[in-house]
């Protein structure tokens, strides 16, 4: 198969980027999209040019590294998969394929198609955890969790943190990501003690990173490789409303259970 690739090239965060067109032939329909790019890069290296930088790791759809907007859709034309699970047989021979990075203020470009997604980590650091010490946990069966609740929590927890939701959103909002994280922990009894503080802290962290707000358009759900439902955004809104009514203001950061003892 043959394709014409229009790829966004940008040498650094503060440099001007632009599209460069590369013809590729000799593409097998059994190649994954990333293997097709590997092939292009091998050719560029031998020709003394710099290869196209793109993020990838597990190549089986679970690590969340790969992050390409292909023909205007994050992770490309197939639903429910990551870029690394996309195969060339999905494309028409001879097609022109446009490849861009995730675009959002909160995801600055590092090089070419690689963006900095640490904003998502910082949201998690603001409250996406349960504060329990290692050791001293009670027996796992002491907490009874109904199968349905456990399954719904798992649905939310299946988010792989790739950021496609942000990339797809008209407003570059991270609501689906935050909603998945908040809902996962809010569903479970272990997560309940900190739920008020958590949702407020994570929403505020999201604001600080410069993500937009939710427009309820549900593009995020439509591109999510793990089919995380927008119903979790409703749940996040509910958690937020509940936390607002419960009256916690900005979380006191001094509530960590350690530190004062010595």
């Amino acid at each position: 198969m043959k394709f014409t690739l229009r790829i966004w090239r940008q040498r650094g965060p503060n440099e001007r980027g632009g599209f460069v067109t590369y013809p590729v032939d000799d593409v097998s329909p059994d190649m994954s999209f990333l293997e097709m790019l590997d092939g292009l890069n091998q050719r560029l290296i031998v020709a003394g040019e710099e290869p196209v930088a793109f993020e990838h790791d597990c190549r089986e759809g679970i690590c969340g590294s790969c992050s390409l907007v292909i023909d205007g859709v994050p992770h490309g034309p197939e639903r429910g998969v990551t870029t690394c699970q996309l195969y060339m047989r999905r494309f028409a021979n001879g097609a022109t394929i446009t490849i861009e990075p995730w675009r959002a203020k909160a995801f600055p470009i590092i090089r070419d198609l690689v963006v900095d997604r640490r904003a998502l980590d910082r949201i998690m650091q603001a409250g996406g955890y349960i504060s329990v010490n290692t050791g001293g946990a009670v027996d796992g069966n002491t907490l009874l969790i109904g199968k349905e609740e456990a399954e719904t929590a798992m649905d939310a927890a299946s988010c792989i943190g790739c950021g496609a939701c942000v990339a797809a959103c008209k407003n570059a909002s991270a609501m689906l990501f935050v909603a998945a994280k908040v809902s996962h922990l809010a569903m479970l009894p272990q997560g309940k003690p900190e739920r008020t503080r958590r949702v407020m802290a994570m929403v505020r962290a999201m604001e600080r990173e410069g993500f937009g707000s939710c427009g309820n358009q549900y593009e995020c759900e439509a591109v999510c490789p793990k089919h995380v439902s927008v119903r979790f955004i409703a749940m996040l809104n509910r958690e937020y409303l509940r936390a607002s009514i419960m009256g916690t203001r900005i979380p006191a950061r001094s509530d960590a259970p350690h530190g004062e003892s010595y």
């Binding site: 290692t134 050791g135 796992g140 272990q190």
Partner: peptide
């Protein structure tokens, strides 16, 4: 420990 941390 994993249950306490919220592993579903």
């Amino acid at each position: 420990q994993c249950v306490a941390l919220g592993v579903p």
